[in-house]
Design a binder for these strands. Sequence first.
DNA 1: TTTATATGTGCAAACGTTTGTACGAGCTAT
DNA 2: ATAGCTCGTACAAACGTTTGCACATATAAA
Lengths: 341, 341
Amino acid sequence: MAVTIKDVAKAAGVSPSTVSRVIGDHPHISEETKKRVRKEMAKLGYHPNLQARSLVVRSTETIGIVMPNSATQALQNPFFPEVLRGISMKAHEDKFGVYLTTGITDDEIFQQVVSMVQGRRVDGIILLYSKTDDQIMNYLLDEKFPFTVIGRPYKNAERITYVDNDNIYITKQVTDYLINLGHRKIAFIGVNLDHVFTIDRLEGYKHALLEAGIAYDETYIIHEECLKSEGKEGITKFLSSHEPPTALVVADDFTAIELMSYSEELNIKVPEEISIVSFNDVPLTEHMRPQLTSVNIDIFQLGFEAANCLIEIIKNPKALPKRITIPARMIERKSCSVINK
Amino acid sequence: MAVTIKDVAKAAGVSPSTVSRVIGDHPHISEETKKRVRKEMAKLGYHPNLQARSLVVRSTETIGIVMPNSATQALQNPFFPEVLRGISMKAHEDKFGVYLTTGITDDEIFQQVVSMVQGRRVDGIILLYSKTDDQIMNYLLDEKFPFTVIGRPYKNAERITYVDNDNIYITKQVTDYLINLGHRKIAFIGVNLDHVFTIDRLEGYKHALLEAGIAYDETYIIHEECLKSEGKEGITKFLSSHEPPTALVVADDFTAIELMSYSEELNIKVPEEISIVSFNDVPLTEHMRPQLTSVNIDIFQLGFEAANCLIEIIKNPKALPKRITIPARMIERKSCSVINK
DNA sequence: TTTATATGTGCAAACGTTTGTACGAGCTAT
DNA sequence: ATAGCTCGTACAAACGTTTGCACATATAAA
């Protein structure tokens, strides 16, 4: 049986309310009493029951994290631990706890969010992704429950606080970079139109093509689901088609590494015959041969700021919605070269 | 203002206790009443306050996860998301929530654990690692609080439920494999004597050497901290020393990949001049050139079983301590070869 | 008709806190 | 000496549940 505030009160010869005020370091309690009570707390090994506390103060000092549907590959790449590290860092600074969803399907996750919110398990929520039509986002908006999003919300962006990179801009830059190297047959690999960030990137890509007067060609867009369903065969067929791309913009480093390994099998040299640039800039990129040119999107900072904004909203529910843009920059390494006709 | 059980009771014209019993599907309530109450719950959008519930039933349906001190690299490699995926899967099956520590230093983490335990935020705890002298483990043992460990506890193992690979055995196998290929100068890279799993692996390694009549040589043991502090210089110096190893047993795939990249810079061919085998078998290994021979330790299963055991203990506190061993196996690929004098 | 039993529901206490209000004691100023 | 303070503390209600017990009603047995 755990020791409660009453036990401490009895031991110190005061009332429970006094003990509570000592814990809160309330100024109206005499130093003498405080000292005595604290001594008893230490002696008895008292620790407040946070549940009981939460119940009355109506706050849990906990933030909920909604992970993407684990059917997606999202958890495979290092995005997740890194963003979590950022969130944890900030949460920890403000003494907030972290609660995770564990659902597999979208529906389960939704149920868990409802349970977090209505069950008063958390004070606010961070959505780790942004999808085009998200039940959860609508729900949180309806409930006016504090939340922030990593990635641009597809709808209602002006009513939501979120943190994102400028995906359009950076992807235009990346594509420009390839165009400037002389490439004209540039493929975009790993698109998923459910995810807003790929929509944005695709737009940046198209924009660059347009500006350079290069026709947009659907066959150069490889969707994520296609990578999964057709696997190695699909992609090698694509790479060795009769008019193969000379450059690839790839959604993430791991996919890029996979592609490099397929290219090698096909005896297509990177970067001499095909240039590759990808996103995320995981530490591994510089250990690849060739070293991978990649876009550093500062995942840690995305998480950190998302938590920062959320805590701000929790503390001041009237805070206005805002957008934070985390700078992304391309790290040029060795996987791209001037086109070699 | 959220809708409470009282609101539902009023709307349905019954007492709060009746509503509570309807929620619990108590048999002594008439079907008719149940139907009526449920209708009101739906109409009002009632959802129970889990905090209040937890307070009285003294259980939170939540498991706490203690992450390693984030100063360590533990979060960098895919161990973490994968083990979390395993834990989540099981937690979710049993409708348990997941709560995470966010501390940076050992001391902060310890404080958070105390707060989880005494603050009644969680019903049990999973330790994601096993260190030689762990304050947290001692504390949980003292408090008789339900917990399980991933990795063999260094002390009190017979009193603790844990899940682990047979690190001694598998590492002996791995080393034997190299010895059978003719290697005699085999280095062990990435030892950290604070972590029980590396202690075990080192033992398996030594055992294999002993059995083969190869003298154990301290200079062939490279500690993790040494990798960090001396970085690239240290390791390249080691690889090009006057009597370099011909084979490496490496603590994890990422370190192995790093080593491969250094070897290449030094013009040491893998596997012709140096063989490498590592641990974890991340998906990337087969995309490396050469493909990396690696030990699959089934991280997902480690997490899943740890959660499974924990929930078992939570449901039946008298459950006896047990050890679960998850099979590990070496996946032979292309990074090792017969020694080439 | 009375007693016993089963069935369905309500009352009130409990879980461990926080906090508004009240109250008593010791001051100072009149 | 009394009124008006300040200061420190206690009382009790509240947070939203669950649950043991009591009670009322209906039914069955005697």
